[in-house]
Design a protein around this nucleic acid. Structure first.
Lengths: 149, 149
DNA sequence: GTTTATGCAAAAGTTTTGCATCAAG
DNA sequence: CTTGATGCAAAACTTTTGCATAAAC
């Protein structure tokens, strides 16, 4: 696997060792394809990517590998407009998403102030935050009719 | 139907009229059960509620009625921990959710400051916001081990 | 009476699982 | 060798749809 994702590979290997699991050539292909794409991939997106490299791989392996990546903290599942998609998780600044309801484009944003306010709200009720998913729907600059309010 | 939900009923009736649809006794039962519960209901929760009132109602009608309520702006679907749930939407201040990963409890919160910051981020990229879903996962006061950091 | 609403069963879509086989250590 | 990984097919779930019948207007 590419050295580019050294951090991720280390985390994954540690996770595998901890659980007594092995690496395998096919698993590596799925992992590389996932890490190498910085997009928000559906299972089928990833399946198609992976098949270009290694046509024998089954959908099941893609599902299983994504579960593995999730449990290792390397992938996060999002449900965007009814469709499950996965994005990279490790070492990424926490971020939220703008999703265009017309063209489906996804834009990421992050705001420390929003995070802080959220923490404050949590403190009020004694809630301990572990993660969050924040999706904003609307129209992107390209799809919003110009001049309309 | 109960007069308590007069606003909602008006909106629903207008929506039905606009689309040339009718009311029906069974539809009314589903709508009342939904409006009368301020919880975040799964399809099955609502189905079970409704069956207590009117055992002949099928799951299909519950699905169809929820779609109808969504399109009328009376219900909103959320995916919480992989499960689709519906909550009331009309005349409700916009709010977000804390979800306890242990007991599943849902706590609502809202913050004008967060909304404003979000608007600001959107403005930066010319995004026009139409709605958002903001879910915060973690442990509620009851489930978080006391004293732990 | 005509059109819409409904229940049932079947279909469609997505994700998981059982199992025999292959690969990894 | 022993255990884990994989593909396939089947199962499990969730949601939608076709169709004949009942209810609304």
């Amino acid at each position: 696997m590419q050295r580019v994702f050294a951090d991720e590979i280390d985390v994954l290997n540690a996770h595998l060792k901890r659980r007594g699991l092995n690496r395998s050539s096919r698993r590596d292909v799925v992992v590389s394809a996932f890490l190498g794409s910085n997009k928000h991939l559906s299972v089928d997106d990833l399946y198609n990517l992976v098949r270009r490299k290694s046509p024998g791989i089954g959908r099941t392996t893609v599902y299983r590998t994504l579960k593995l990546l999730e449990s290792a903290g390397l992938a996060q599942a999002l449900v965007l407009q009814g469709e499950t998609r996965f994005e990279r998780e490790l070492n990424r600044r926490h971020h939220d998403h703008f999703i265009c309801s017309v063209c489906g484009s996804i834009f990421e944003f992050s705001s420390d102030e929003i995070e802080a306010l959220q923490e404050e709200e949590a403190r009020k009720i004694g809630f301990r935050i572990e993660g969050h998913k924040h999706q904003v729907y609307g129209k992107c600059a390209k799809c919003a009719p110009a001049g309309s309010k």
